[in-house]
Every structure is written in C-alpha cells, then in structure tokens.
Nucleic acid binder design. Structure first.
Length: 470
DNA sequence: CTATGGCACGGATT
DNA sequence: AATCCGTGCCATAG
C-alpha cells in the first residue's frame, strides 16, 4: 500500500518518535499554531506557499485536489489525500471563512481559549492562570465540580478571587459555564435575561421545584405555586427555549438538531469526507487538512549559507538544521499515519458515513493498528482530538468511529420513536434480542439515558428537545 | 410488585 | 497502568 516517505533513510531516533507522538495527538488547529511558532523560532525552516500535491509532489494551481493524483485512484479504494489548510468551506456555505478560523474548535481547551478571550479585559493579570485552572477543571457539561475552597487551596489564591473569577466566567458566552450543576446553570442564565413575568416564575420553579421540573410533574408544581397548568406549561416552554442546563454542550453537541440553529459551533475540521457523485456508493473522497497551506522544507539558502560560514557559528546552525528536518519528518510521518488510518477507516465504515449511525460497525483501535502495522497507541493518538466533517454536513469527533454502542443506541431511538405505547427497558431489550442484538436490560437503560430518552413511565406525552440561546 | 437508577465489579480497550 | 463499558445486584419510587 503506502510507504513511509523517508527519503533520507535515516534511522528513526527516539527524539523523532517522541515528537511524532506528540504531534499526532494534536488537532489540526493546534498543529497549525505549533508549526507557526516553529517557523518563527527556527530560521532553517521554510514555508513555501506554492501548493504541491502531498501525494505525488506535483505543483497545483489553486486549492483544488491534484487531478493527476485523484484520477489514478480507482473506485475500489477510497480516495484519501492531504489538502491545504484553508481549502475547507463549510457546507452551510457563504459564511465568512475568516470567522470560522477565529472561532476555536470545540475541544475543552479551546472552549477555555474562547472564554479567556472574552474575559481578557475584565480579568486582573494575577487572576489569569486562576481562570485557566478553573476552565480546565470543568467537566464535559461545563460544570465546575470542585469546591471553590478546594480551588483556592490548590492555586493558593484567596477564596474571594476564586469566587469572583467563577462569577466572571459564568457571565460570558456559553452562559452558565462553571456552574455547580444544571440547576445552578439555569439560574445563572436566568439572571442574565431581562426581567419579565415568565422569568420570575421560572426562577421560582427552578429554585423550589427543580426535581419536579425534571420529572415533568407540572400538576404538582402548579398546585404548590397556586397557578394554572397552562401558565406553568408556558413557563416550561420558556425555560426550554431560552435556557440550557448543560452550557458546554452547545459547543460540542451531537450536532444533530443544534448545528443548524447555531452556526458558531462550526469550526474547521481536521478531516473532510465528501461524496462527489451522490448516489454512487464508490466515490468517497477524504480530505485530510494539512496544518499549513503550502509545504514545509529546509530552507535551501540556509543550507548553502551554512557551508560558507566559519566553524563556531555553524554549530548552532547545525542544530537548527537538524531540528528543522526532524520537524518536517515528524509532520510527514503524522500525515502518513493519518492517511493510512482514514483509508482503512473509510473502507470499513463506508455504510456508516453514508447511511448514518445505525451502520457503524464496532471496531477497535487495536484492530486498525494491526491492519496498518503500527502500535495501538499510535492509533489512539491519531484518533484523539480530531474532528471529521461528514458528507451530510455533520461534524463529529473522529473517535465516534470507534463507538462500540452507537448503532444499538440508534436502533433504540428508532424503537422508541415508533412505539405506540411506552415500552419498558425490558421490552426494548427483548425486541433487540429478536434482532440478534443481545444486550442486558440494564444496558438498555444506560443507552436510553445517554440518548436523553425519558423512562417509559414519563414518556406518555411527547418528546423533548433542548435547544438554547436567545 | 415492577421499572429504574446507583454502585460497583470484572473484563476489555487504550 | 489507567480508563471505559457492560452488567448484576440492590434500594427506591411509583
């Protein structure tokens, strides 16, 4: 299949391995930054703007893929190629590309960057690392589970500062971030809305009847608050439409309902999978975005200049040269791994890519590793922190390709949506086992909650959504 | 009594 | 070695 493009045939040093590993972990955006800083600090490294097809080395006119190269691939192999960093256009189209790159990707660290940016002016210098600490200890839902006191102690900052920073964080863009839980998050968001009748009642409900709200026991709430049912329902709708109990999920959502409503969640993916001629099963095209547009090389001028220099300077220069070529090789190595990974992944998961979650085959990183002959941990790193744009426009983390239970969860969703009367977990388990999917009753319950499906008892009425933002 | 969610254990995965 | 995931058992709510 593909061979490692190591022209110099130099043995791989441990430094090389270590660096390749750390680069593999990085998302494209992160790597972009890394490359930029490397370029700035190392004069031997040069970025050539001219575009070259990374697969065949041919010069390219625009951002397009290399025609010579893609055409020589045949239908039985998915087409996988490297693509310049700035060639991605979101399918929601039109949108200004610059903005997209400014909006940081959605991994937690980037959420932190997003928040810190907004905080820049309000934050005292000495509180910056405190803010960063707090942001990085948030969980996936954007909650702060550690006690402020605990944070104050580990960061050696006064409790008052900690509380102040938490307050600041909770007021910026994903509103309610760093709350202690869903209830707290809702209250904070509520406080930011203009006062109105619904707002006050909503606050009362969330404060005093949060549990009941979650269980949809509206009658009980109405009775306790001495209000009418329709009134309560109106307020509940108000809450569902304007508040989001899980602040961070607006950033890294499942991308199903939400992505269309909030264009800000889009960012540049690391990988784009598209289908040139729709309808056909074969032509899947995979673009892996390079960290920079153009390509990196050791500056030839630097090399020649070096030979004419005297001995004592050349030592430092040699170091630079060494570092530059090492860096370039690591990036090639990374590209190569990514390409081989996507190649096998797309081949085996084609039905999933084209026809949805149901067709995801459970596959382990270990199996892929064996298939393309690298260590498991290499695959783990390659998969981590990457995002993929699918032909239908959805943006998912690359790790979803390895989700063992996604197809079953998808089937459960379907079963529930087609049910006439609410089915208990046990019933669902039975239906699944008739289809050859053996899962324990308990497991169905787990999947159900992951998918945000209410228990059978509470499913009488209709389904729920949880959008956000006003 | 039944359906669910919590806790925790063991085995697989990373 | 650390983490994740499926599952069994048990307490609890309805």
């Amino acid at each position: 299949m593909f061979q490692i493009q190591d022209q110099s045939m130099r043995p791989l040093t441990t430094a090389h391995l270590a660096q390749t590993m750390s680069l593999l972990n990085l998302s494209n955006t992160e790597l972009h930054e890394k490359v930029i800083s490397e370029l700035a600090s190392n004069p031997a490294l040069e970025l050539v703007e001219e575009r070259v097809c990374p697969t065949c080395g041919r010069k390219l006119a625009g951002a397009a893929a290399c025609p010579a190269c893609s055409s020589k691939h045949t239908d039985d192999e998915p087409i996988v190629f490297m693509s310049p960093r700035d060639s991605y256009q979101p399918r929601s189209s039109g949108g200004d590309l610059e903005d997209l790159y400014d909006v940081e990707p959605t991994a937690p660290e980037n959420l932190a960057a997003h928040v810190l940016q907004q905080l820049a002016s309000d934050l005292k210098e000495e509180d910056r690392h405190l803010a960063y600490y707090i942001l990085s200890s948030l969980d996936d839902d954007g909650f702060l589970t550690d006690e402020p006191v605990f944070i104050a102690r580990t960061t050696r900052r006064p409790l008052s500062s900690v509380q102040e920073v938490i307050r600041l964080i909770s007021c910026v863009d994903p509103p309610g971030l760093a709350a202690s839980g869903p209830r707290d998050a809702l209250l904070i968001q509520l406080g930011m809305l203009p006062a109105c009748e619904s707002r006050d009642l909503a606050e009362a409900i969330i404060r005093s009847f949060f549990k009941e709200l979650g269980r949809r026991e509206y009658e009980k709430i109405a009775a306790s608050l001495d209000t009418s049912m329709p009134h309560i329902r109106r307020v509940v709708t108000f809450i569902q439409e304007n508040l989001n109990p899980y602040p961070a999920r607006a950033f890294w959502g499942s991308g199903r309902q939400r992505s269309s409503s909030d264009p800000n969640v889009f960012h540049a993916p690391d990988i784009l999978i598209k289908q040139n001629r729709s309808g056909e099963d074969n032509p899947l095209v995979v673009e892996i975005f390079a960290p920079v547009s153009g390509w990196l090389r050791v500056n030839p001028l630097f090399r020649t200049a070096m030979s004419s220099r005297d001995e004592n300077t050349s030592e430092a220069w040699n170091k630079h040269l060494e570092k530059a070529s090492l860096f370039i090789k690591c990036i090639q190595q990374r590209n190569n791994t990514m390409r081989r990974l996507m190649m096998t992944l797309v081949r085996t998961q084609q039905p999933f890519i084209l026809h949805g979650d149901r067709h995801l085959k459970p596959i382990t990183r270990a199996r892929i590793a064996e298939e393309i002959g690298v260590h498991e941990s290499t695959i783990s790193r390659a998969v981590a922190n990457k995002s993929v744009a699918l032909p239908d426009g959805r943006m998912i983390p690359l790790s979803r390709f390895f989700d063992r239970s996604l197809s079953v969860r998808d089937r459960i969703k379907e079963i529930v949506s087609e049910e006439t009367k609410p089915l208990t977990d046990e019933c669902i388990a039975d239906i699944l086992s008739e289809e050859g999917i053996e899962v324990a009753r308990r497991t169905v319950a787990k999947y159900r909650t992951i998918e945000g499906i209410l228990p059978a008892r509470l499913r009488h009425q209709k389904k729920t959504k949880m959008p956000m933002k006003a």
